[in-house]
Amino acid sequence: MSKVSVDVFKGFPDEDSIVNYTLNQAYRDNVSVFASVIVQTNKDGSLPPHVLYKIRQNSSFTEKTNEIRRAYWRPGPNTGGKFYFLYGFVWIQDMIERAIINTFVGHDVVEPGNYVQMFPYPCYTRDDFLFVIEHMMPLCMVISWVYSVAMMIQHIVAEKEHRLKEVRPSDGHLEFCYHRYDY
């Protein structure tokens, strides 16, 4: 354990100093900033009765905001949001909350702990038929629409090509009425 550094916390006077260090100096110092905690204190440095704090985590350990929620809803568990408990955000939040309670109460807080569970619970059973239908049905609808539009365009072009005004059925056959316009 002699080679393990436990000096992982670094203090800053204000939020601007943290942002400046993280953006400019941390890379040069070969320091990987895991997260920053900004605590709003009283002017004398004491904690107010209602403590406000921010946790600003490294973007490598958080989910991009456009990936948190799906673009459209599908039944089943949402796979987004795992970064918050897999990469330490919940751990940091729990650590800060316990420290705040410890400061006000005067002794260590042991219980309750954090329990994380995916929603919905119990486990979702995926319906493979519905999965295939929801992906194939729009394709089939578009293909059927494209075919009917193509046939309609073909008939319109043939009508214009032959300079037809009317097409009417007669005895099971199509009878074309030619109207020639001489100009």
Score class of each variant (00 low, 15 high):
Lys3Glu: 09
Val4Asn: 05
Ser5Pro: 09
Val6Asp: 12
Gly11Asp: 10
Phe12Val: 04
Pro13Ala: 03
Pro13Leu: 06
Asp14Arg: 07
Asp14Met: 07
Glu15Met: 05
Ser17Arg: 06
Ser17Thr: 02
Ile18Glu: 11
Leu23Ala: 04
Ala26Ser: 11
Arg28Val: 06
Asp29Leu: 02
Val31Trp: 05
Ser32Lys: 13
Val37Asp: 09
Ile38Val: 15
Val39Glu: 03
Asn42Leu: 15
Ser46Ala: 08
Val51Cys: 01
Tyr53Phe: 15
Tyr53Thr: 06
Tyr53Trp: 12
Lys54Tyr: 04
Lys54Val: 00
Ser60Gln: 14
Phe61Leu: 14
Thr62Gln: 07
Glu63Gly: 05
Glu63Met: 07
Lys64Val: 00
Asn66Glu: 14
Glu67Leu: 11
Ile68Glu: 06
Arg69Ser: 08
Arg69Leu: 03
Ala71His: 12
Pro75Asp: 01
Asn78Phe: 03
Thr79Phe: 13
Lys82Cys: 00
Lys82Gly: 14
Phe83Pro: 03
Phe83Glu: 15
Tyr87Trp: 12
Trp91Glu: 15
Gln93Tyr: 02
Asp94Glu: 14
Ile96Asn: 06
Ile101Gly: 00
Phe104Met: 01
Val105Gly: 02
His107Asp: 06
Asp108Tyr: 08
Val110Gly: 00
Val110Phe: 02
Val110Pro: 03
Glu111Leu: 00
Pro112Met: 01
Gly113His: 07
Asn114His: 04
Asn114Asp: 09
Asn114Cys: 04
Tyr115Leu: 09
Val116Cys: 11
Met118Tyr: 14
Met118Thr: 13
Phe119Gln: 01
Tyr121Cys: 11
Tyr121Val: 09
Pro122Glu: 10
Cys123Trp: 05
Asp127Cys: 08
Asp128Asn: 07
Leu130Pro: 00
Phe131Ile: 04
Ile133Tyr: 05
Glu134Val: 01
His135Tyr: 02
His135Ala: 05
Met136Glu: 15
Pro138Ala: 07
Cys140Pro: 07
Val142Phe: 11
Ile143Asp: 14
Tyr147His: 07
Val149Glu: 09
Gln154Thr: 12
Glu161Cys: 12
Arg163Tyr: 12
Lys165Val: 12
Val167Ile: 15
Ser170Glu: 14
Asp171Val: 02
Glu175Trp: 05
Glu175Phe: 03
